[in-house]
Write a protein that binds this DNA or RNA. Structure first.
Length: 893
DNA sequence: ATAGGGTTAG
């Protein structure tokens, strides 16, 4: 009760409680009187979303002066006819000074649509009182923040007992006409129920009982409706019991019983509903309808059908509604057999040419995948509307027959069907799924011509269409045209930014949404988790996670899988595992996420274990699962196991192996140094090698210095992809690694001629919330001097430690030369900076955009040994955990 | 009555 919280009414707690009823009662009194004077019907009031019209009238006394006079006269009359009530009622109108001031000075119109007990409407009623009853100049004696209305006693000060619920013997006998119907109390009771305040409503009903005030049947009816809307079955049962006690079951008329049925059905209390239904001696078609539709809407098609048959047995003729309902049931249940029977039955009894029934049929057949039947029904319809067409179009797109959906759209346009926004969402989907960008743009034009692009239902699919086309600018434009974007529109644009790699933009939008208190949903969070993992921003990621938990917005699977990936990609496998373990029933994607996560961290045996668990949980792996598995094998040199997995893919799990899988296998061989086997597989004809296949082989040849194969691989690679930067770099590295300077120089020249530049390598590290970024030879950092000093110090330490191992002077000289060459690689700068700025026990986590080079990898291993620090490096490929001179990748990287 | 937004890979 806002009025109380605002300090409208003062007094001890018990009294305020009482006063509350009186205060509300008083408000009702006004309404009741208005009602009696004929300007509003009681049924309107009993709904107690108070008709704004009533209040408006009260708000404009000039227009309804007569009415107001009448009210005041009536109240006065009522006052005279009863003795002055206790102080309790007097205290009702003790009004806080602040509020009166506010009321008097306020010229703004309070929003009338607000529900009566919303608080906001109460001051408004006061305002009316202030304007019309209490002249503004007559104020008010200050009495320690509490003011009493003084000179001009409001007519409301003396509240009639019949409005205050105080059992007053005099009133019940002397005013039977007023007390009789308990109308005001009923209105109050209903208003409580309509606001979902059932506990108070029940208390109030008790109070009414003890005051001897009864309620009428239609009030019960409204109570049941309120319980149904709030899905409060227990309160529904309470009022039901109350009614049975007061009225008894014999007198139940059909409309009350129907209300009861509706309430129980809405609350999913089918047993209760059945009990009522069985006892009904006067069932009508509507009663059957309620029951059947209740079962249908909650997925109990069989029960609905049983009832339908019984209904026919009892001699009722089914109407359209029931047929539409049963067909909907078949659609939900995807039960085309029953659907067909109902269809034939309707034909048999001569139901035809009804647009809504036929549309329901089109929809039913389409959803069940019976597209020909669906098309047939649509064809035979005398008149079709947008819904009928849309239903079949959905069927076509779901069956990957996008082209036919588009043809259908054309027919629909030719027939001059009146379009609605829903049509576009399916047509645009058909366009983007079939890559028909041109048609999609034409349809976009059509939407603009119709002036529907500002409609969220048409605008959102446009956004989605351009996202799929990879055109975020157009998507953003389309989004900007939507006049009232809803959460679906927001999630579409955020997902677009996330999918197209504009991750920072996702966060920007998210912050905006939060600052505006716009509804968020689990779709948005899923995209944001994805953005966090792409940015390897675990701090945003975990904050988002917490935020989503608070709002209960982690969708069961999709969001969870994204979370697992987020933690894994950010380097926290423990959290990734925890997130995974919390998933009640992981699906293929979730299992794949944890398997890939493990593989990303080089935890091959864990990855394989998860795969076994997945299989024993009867979850089917997909193509991506196998990529994760094969990668895990390749990172740990499990050659024969990888071969087994590759061979078992189709035979054991029905998943076709693609180039990607074969490339993984090529990678497995290459990393294990089995270059010939890799080459054999590429040349075997079991798959069509792409540039990636050769690139992997080339990379292997570089590592293992196999010039013969490397040349072949390089030639094939450049043949397939002459503009691939990485190809040139690889070939260049291969030659320099082997000391073949001439060839290396030739490659460099070729690169220059063809305008190919190496991507700048870049590493970054987060220290106390700030990201520090380094490129090769970077001297921009404010602490550059210290960083290089640290690097030299590290170098000395490493050399010292190396020389203990190797006494060979030549080796150490060569090593020293190379060390100097490579000293300013970006990851080294980041590591040195991390070592000087982070606390001693804190692991150093560095991110790099490209792959770590061989030298830096050994350098980092040594640094971890000589400093005793844990160093984690994430390169473009995976995570490396360095500790005590070893790396988690075991040099398979 | 009809649809629309998200997740796993390199």
């Amino acid at each position: 009760m806002c009025a109380l919280e605002l300090g409208f009414i003062t007094g001890a707690e018990k009294r305020t409680c009482l006063a509350r009823h009186n205060y509300i009662g008083m408000t009702h009194l006004l309404i009741g009187l208005l009602c009696e004077s004929g300007s509003a019907s009681i049924s309107e009031l009993e709904n107690l979303r108070v008709d704004p019209g009533i209040i408006n009238k009260a708000d404009q006394p000039e227009r309804d002066k007569e009415l107001w006079d009448k009210i005041i006269a009536l109240i006065d009359k009522a006052n005279k006819r009863r003795t002055v009530e206790s102080e309790a009622s007097a205290s009702n109108l003790v009004v806080a000074k602040r509020n009166v001031k506010h009321i008097v000075s306020s010229s703004t119109k309070a929003p009338v649509e607000n529900a009566l007990f919303d608080g906001s409407s109460l001051p408004m009623m006061d305002k009316n009182i202030g304007n019309h009853v209490i002249p503004q100049d007559e104020t008010i004696k200050d009495n320690s923040n509490v003011i009493q209305l003084k000179n001009h006693p409001s007519p409301f000060i003396k509240i009639p007992s019949w409005a205050s619920l105080h059992p007053s013997p005099s009133s019940s006998s002397s005013m039977p006409g007023q007390h009789q119907n308990g109308r005001l109390e009923s209105v109050h009771l209903l208003s409580l129920a309509n606001h979902g305040r059932f506990n108070e409503a029940r208390e109030f009903l008790d109070l009414m009982d003890s005051s001897g005030i009864s309620i009428k049947r239609h009030v019960y009816q409204s109570l049941f409706t309120a319980c149904g809307i709030s899905k409060s079955i227990n309160d529904g049962r309470f009022f039901h019991n109350h009614m049975m006690k007061k009225i008894g079951s014999k007198d139940l008329n059909t409309s009350i019983a129907d209300c009861l049925l509706k309430m129980y059905v809405r609350c999913l209390g089918f047993d209760d509903a059945y009990r009522v239904f069985h006892k009904m001696s006067n069932k009508m078609l509507s009663s059957w309808n309620i029951m059947i539709s209740g079962f249908v809407h909650n997925g109990h098609l069989q029960e609905a059908l049983d009832l339908f048959l019984r209904m026919k047995d009892e001699g009722f003729d089914p109407d359209m509604k029931i047929f539409a309902c049963l067909l909907l049931g078949c659609t939900i249940d995807l039960n085309v057999d029953i659907g067909k029977q109902i269809h034939s039955y309707m034909v048999k009894i001569g139901f035809s040419n009804d647009i809504s029934i036929d549309t329901e049929l089109v929809n039913m057949y389409a959803k069940c995948g019976y597209l020909d039947s669906s098309a047939l029904v649509l064809d035979h319809m005398v008149e079709r509307n947008a819904t009928s067409w849309t239903s079949l179009m959905v069927g076509y797109t779901q069956a990957s027959r996008q082209f036919e959906a588009l043809v259908l759209f054309k027919h629909m346009m030719l027939e001059n069907t009146e379009l609605d926004p829903f049509v576009f969402s399916i047509v645009l989907k058909a366009c983007s799924e079939s890559g028909n960008w041109k048609a999609g743009k034409q349809i976009h034009g059509c939407i603009i011509k119709l002036g529907m692009d500002s409609d969220v239902s048409a605008g959102t699919p446009i956004v989605d269409f351009y996202v799929n086309d990879g055109n975020i600018l157009e998507a953003q434009n389309a989004f900007d045209r939507i006049s009232q974007p809803n959460e679906v529109a927001w999630s579409a644009i955020i997902a677009g930014y996330s999918q197209l790699g504009r991750h920072e933009e996702c966060f920007r939008m998210f912050k905006f949404l939060r600052s505006r208190n716009i509804t968020l949903n689990s779709f948005i969070y899923s995209s944001l988790f994805q953005a966090s993992s792409a940015l390897t921003d675990s701090s945003s990621g975990s904050q988002l996670h917490a935020d989503a938990i608070k709002r209960c917005l982690i969708s069961n699977l999709v969001g969870d899988s994204a979370l697992v990936t987020m933690y894994a990609r950010c380097g926290d496998m423990q959290y990734a595992q925890k997130a995974f373990e919390l998933i009640a029933e992981p699906d293929t994607v979730a299992w794949t996420a944890i398997i890939t996560g493990c593989s990303y961290h080089g935890q091959a045996s864990e990855a394989l274990d998860f795969f076994d668990m997945m299989i024993s949980c009867n979850v089917k792996p997909n193509a991506i699962t196998f990529i994760g598995l094969l990668n895990a094998c390749s990172h740990t040199g499990l050659v024969s196991l990888a071969k087994e997995y590759l061979d078992s893919m189709y035979v054991g799990y029905g998943v076709e192996a693609t180039v990607d899988h074969y490339n993984c296998m090529v990678d497995v061989y290459c990393r294990a140094g089995q270059l010939e086997a890799a080459y054999e597989l590429i040349s075997s004809g079991s798959f069509k090698p792409d540039s990636m296949s050769w690139k992997i082989l080339l990379s292997g040849c570089t590592t293992y210095r196999n010039m013969g194969l490397g040349k072949i691989a390089g030639e094939n690679l450049l043949r397939l992809d002459p503009n691939d930067t990485a190809a040139y770099i690889l070939i260049f590295n291969m030659y320099t690694g082997a000391g073949r300077w001439e060839e290396a120089a030739f490659v460099r020249k070729m690169m220059n001629e063809r305008g190919i530049r190496k991507e700048v390598s870049c590493s970054w590290i987060t220290v106390r919330g700030t990201i520090h970024r380094f490129i090769v030879g970077d001297k921009h950092h404010p602490l550059t001097k210290h960083i290089y000093f640290k690097l030299h110090e590290l170098e000395r330490l490493v050399m010292l430690s190396e020389s203990q191992v190797s006494t060979n002077e030549d080796v150490s000289i060569i090593h020293k030369q190379r060390m100097e060459q490579l000293l300013d690689h970006s990851e080294r700068l980041a590591i040195a900076f991390g070592l000087m700025s982070l606390p001693t026990r804190c692991p150093i986590t560095v991110f790099k955009n490209l792959r770590v080079c061989n030298d830096c990898h050994s350098f980092t291993k040594m640094v971890s040994k000589v400093t005793g620090r844990d160093i984690i490096v994430r390169d473009s490929n995976r995570f490396h955990h360095f500790r005590g001179g070893r790396c988690s990748c075991d040099d398979y990287w």
